[in-house]
Design a binder for these strands. Structure first.
Length: 514
RNA sequence: GCCACGGUAGCUCAGUGGUAGAGCAACUGAUUCGUAAUCAGUAGGUCGAGAGUUCGAUUCUCUCUCGUGGCUCCA
């Protein structure tokens, strides 16, 4: 590379006809290039670029001369399937990047380093939040006490919001008779990612890969009336899906996870407003978690699907109407719907600009049909309800991983596993530290004391590294005055105040979820 | 699942065909300290697992397993 750059060769564009190009690459023995050329529409020109001896097929554009490349670096290499098809040949792919100055390259590498520093797998270890281990098997998460504290805060908020939002909370088992999945049709579509059945008294039972059939069974326990709708049933439901070993990734892709699932059963005429309400709910919840940038996609009918044209048409237009009624900008994702209906996906943008798919809202007319759901309508006839599947956070594991990266481990106080750490300056003030600790705990603050035999600087460093939002420093001065010295992780030294003032400061931050 | 690369102390990592070392953490002692690392000592490892080659394997070979980067996939 260095030599090519040094020679400062001009890079020349060469257009050629299809036949010339095919002949050229056939001579070179490059069967893949020949295949690409054959796929280029006749209306488009075929171009090659050349510098020195090197000639290759490329659409361009290129820099004018090789000397323009002042800095480059190879980043990684990996194998890829030809045309992304695992049944076809494999190619070795080399990833690299080039810049017009060494400084730009260094900045780029610095940004990568920063992204690495907020990697949830690294922080999960450093902050003692979660782990996975060989002894358990891949893709299965152990939530450590500190991770579990955060998860509990998320769940508490989630439940509270759902109850306020007109949902009922339900619970369902982790396994069920496999027939449920035969009826639902999931076995036909997703058998490969479902775990093998287990034999219980001669019946096949199945570890659940989703929660919907359970909610449907609750629906079926009564004869429903049009007056009952909408029924909104939500569950933090833990599901298990077999993910291929190569796709597992920290918390973002796992084999056992908890969906913040809900199913809304409603009438035709309620569909649009229900969807709109879910959209509002999604944005307001995400805002509380610190996300304000969104990308919205409407996914339409895929190649493999069930249901009638009329149903798809109706559901898709209801989703569209809901988006438009809320003046939400969205893009159409053609053919990316689920086999049973169209969907809206919401991606959130994190603080360094990466988009994460979390929320999904899916219309389903397959399951009501397959499970023969019905209700008594106002004219006394039996009708089929519409079902909406929705998850706001998606999976708690994944969402948690995204949160860790978004905040780089420095959680807002309401989520922080340790909200305040009380630090003693000397052994003499330990009893005072304990009274402060009790006061904070009594107000529901997640506080802990550091009375170890270390210097103040060292204890502060340790609290800083653990990203504790507040450090409460107690020395003889504070003990004498009955006050505390407050240091905020974000704002630094806040000075000395009476304990009650600190308590109202931190508790208001916690209740307001700032 | 596929390709490539990895797994050494709790963590971050050196190292070697003759069974291993550092820093931090832990523990013990001294110190009682004012806003990002006090000092000293102690302990800690079947070198991911199994098999093979070898007089001898943590080191070489194979299989498995877990992880990492990609590909494909994600109800």
């Amino acid at each position: 590379m260095g030599e090519i750059v040094k020679k400062n060769l001009p890079i020349e564009k060469k257009e050629m006809t299809r036949d010339q190009a095919i002949q050229l690459f056939q001579q070179k023995g490059e069967k893949f290039k020949v295949e690409i050329i054959q796929d280029i529409p006749a209306s488009e020109a075929i171009t090659c670029f050349q510098h020195g001896e090197w000639l290759d097929l490329c659409k361009g554009p290129h820099v004018e001369r090789t000397g323009e490349i002042k800095a480059f670096k190879l980043l990684s290499s990996a194998s890829a399937y030809w045309r992304g098809d695992e049944k076809r040949d494999r190619l070795q792919r080399i990833y690299g990047t080039a810049f017009t100055s060494q400084k730009d390259l260094e900045e780029f590498l610095e940004r990568r380093k920063q992204a690495e520093a907020r990697d949830h797998r690294k922080l999960g270890k450093e902050l003692d939040l979660f782990s996975t281990m060989e002894e358990l098997g891949p893709g299965l998460i152990l939530w450590h006490p500190k991770g579990a504290r955060i998860r509990k805060s998320i769940e508490d908020f989630w439940r509270e919001s759902h109850v306020k939002g007109g949902y009922e909370i339900v619970y369902t088992p982790h396994i069920a008779n496999r027939d449920l999945w035969k009826t639902s049709g999931h076995l036909d579509f997703y058998q490969d990612s479902m775990y093998s059945p287990m034999d219980l008294d001669g019946q096949d039972y199945q570890l659940k890969p989703m929660n919907c059939p359970f909610h449907i069974q609750i629906f079926k326990t009564q004869l429903r009336s049009y007056r009952d709708f909408p029924l909104r049933w939500a569950e933090l439901g833990t599901v298990y899906r077999y993910e291929r070993s190569g796709v597992l990734h920290g918390l973002l892709r796992v084999r056992g996870f908890t969906q913040d699932d809900a199913h809304i059963f409603c009438r035709d005429d309620q569909l649009e407003s229900e969807v709109a309400q879910v959209l509002d709910f999604t944005f307001s919840m995400m805002k509380t978690f610190g996300f304000s940038d969104f990308e919205v996609y409407l996914s339409t009918r895929p190649e493999k699907f069930v249901g009638t044209d009329a149903n798809w048409e109706h559901a898709t237009s209801a989703l569209k109407q809901a988006l438009e009624s809320r003046k939400i900008k969205y893009e159409i994702d053609p053919g990316e719907g689920v086999f049973y209906g169209p969907k809206i996906d919401v991606k959130i943008r994190d603080v360094i600009g990466r988009a994460w798919q979390c929320s999904t809202i899916q219309v389903d007319f397959n399951l009501p049909n397959r499970f023969e759901l019905e209700y008594v309508s106002d004219d006394g006839t039996r009708k089929q309800p519409i079902m909406v599947h929705r998850a706001l956070l998606g999976s708690l594991e994944r969402f948690f991983g995204v949160l860790v990266e978004h905040y780089a481990g420095l959680f807002p106080t309401w989520l922080a596993p340790v909200q305040a750490r009380i630090i003693s300056i000397s052994e003499k003030v330990v009893p005072y530290v304990e009274t402060i600790l009790e006061k904070l705990k009594a107000q529901g603050v997640r506080a802990e004391a550091d009375v170890s035999n270390e210097k103040l600087g060292s204890k502060i460093r340790s609290a800083e590294l653990q990203k504790v939002p507040y450090m409460i420093i107690c020395g003889q001065k504070e003990a004498d005055q009955g006050k505390v010295s407050v240091r905020s992780k974000k704002k630094g030294d806040l000075g000395v105040m009476v304990v009650e003032d600190f308590i109202s400061l931190i508790t208001s931050e916690i209740t307001n979820k700032n």
